[in-house]
């Protein structure tokens, strides 16, 4: 554990809880992509199956349980409790275009051919692109609520902080997992456009709207 990873994890946690609280408080999931949330639920499920097979630390296990619960809680709020507020007309990204290539790639580039390892790798590839339906939705509606912008910024920062963590781990403990590093870089690049808008607009008190 180092400061970069801890900050990354806390940023990830903040993002997930921010979204949950936002939906709960406003009684609405308008502007949130249900498809991205479905992808994140698949990501957490396939990655954290190892809760049952390998123990790293209490910290890791608790975080995994929180991520899984919050993810399914978000799906429950979006597709059941506040379903009438779900803006499915603007959530039109075809997620099979992400699900299938990620699955194929996880069979091609993987550390070891075991079920758990392929599922873990799949979760890494899918996570890298899981935000695309949400970003697509923002670009279609041309705007995002400020709280949604904070959510996206925290979620994007998490993998950027993990990149610093991997650089640190490379020099301090010879850690080098190219699968997760390259996927993490791709994931962070996808947010760059959004980061720019967030810094130039949202942080100056303006609403995020596209020109």
């Amino acid at each position: 554990m180092n400061i970069f990873r801890l900050c990354g994890d806390l940023s990830h946690l903040l993002a997930i809880l921010l979204l949950l609280v936002k939906i709960w408080k406003t009684r609405s999931c308008a502007g949130i992509s249900g498809k991205s949330q479905i992808l994140f639920a698949i990501v957490y499920t396939t990655r954290y199956l190892d809760l049952f097979t390998s123990f790293v630390s209490i910290y890791n296990s608790v975080m995994k349980i929180v991520f899984l619960s919050a993810s399914y809680g978000t799906l429950y709020l979006m597709f059941y409790k506040f379903k009438p507020t779900y803006d499915h007309n603007h959530d039109s990204f075809r997620i099979l275009y992400l699900i299938v290539p990620a699955l194929v790639l996880s069979f091609v580039i993987v550390h070891a051919y075991t079920l758990m390892e392929v599922l873990w790798t799949y979760s890494i590839y899918l996570e890298a692109v899981a935000i695309m339906p949400q970003l697509f939705m923002v670009s279609r509606t041309g705007e995002a609520e400020t709280i949604t912008s904070h959510y996206l910024f925290a979620l994007g920062s998490y993998r950027a902080l993990y990149i610093l963590n991997w650089i640190y781990r490379y020099y301090t403990e010879d850690f080098l997992d190219l699968i997760v590093i390259i996927a993490g870089i791709v994931q962070t690049i996808l947010y760059c456009d959004f980061f720019y808008l967030y810094i130039t607009k949202v942080l100056k008190g303006k609403r995020l709207s596209l020109p």
Binding site: S54, S57, N60, F67, T114, E117, W120, N165
Partner: peptide
């Protein structure tokens, strides 16, 4: 084959 990769991150 009991090869297992250790993943210690989230």
């Amino acid at each position: 084959e009991s090869f297992k990769v250790q993943h210690d991150e989230l």
